[in-house]
Design a protein around this nucleic acid. Sequence first.
DNA 1: TATGAGATCAACT
DNA 2: GTTGATCTCATAC
Length: 193
Amino acid sequence: MTMSAANLSRSFFARSVHKIAPDLIGATLLIDGAGGRIVEVEAYHHTDPAAHSFSGQTARNAVMFGPPGKAYVYRSYGIHWCLNFVCESEDSASAVLIRAIEPLEGLAKMRRRRGLSDERLLCSGPGRLGEALGITHALNGLTLDRPPFELIARKTKPEIVTGVRIGITKAAELPWRYGLAGSRFLSKPFKTS
DNA sequence: TATGAGATCAACT
DNA sequence: GTTGATCTCATAC
């Protein structure tokens, strides 16, 4: 599969979540001009007890059961907004959770939203990233290849590390977390063996 | 460095 | 009523 500098669109997301998740590391995500390079994601497959889609469709997760290439936004712990990209096709609701971004564009806007100047903590975690990019329920279900989203494929394949997912109790042993090796913008370090 | 509480909401038992 | 794909701040070692 070749990936030029074109925007990622529906065909990119019409694949297995396990292929898409590592392919997103190094891609650039902007929302209304704020964002940067994706450095950490997690894959959630519909057969996975930790996935929101595991127990079937609800009002919250309905977007996961629709076509791929859309944003799935949910409220986490009553406080944060977390962003996912919907993958695969209708009968296999799965998604990639965007967990951390290296801030590159719209720094002033993101600092203002976060009330924080430390670049390292601007987008290093799903809730932080949600606040910095201004993510809310209003983005749920929107298509990723149109404004306010800008999603640009990486130009070269970076070194990628994998590990177990963070903050879950179900299926906690599955190594479906992917990160950019050596990045200082990860939400938590990956175990080095 | 590590552990704990609070914030606050939707899904689920 | 409890739990969770989280983060921040406070207190303790």
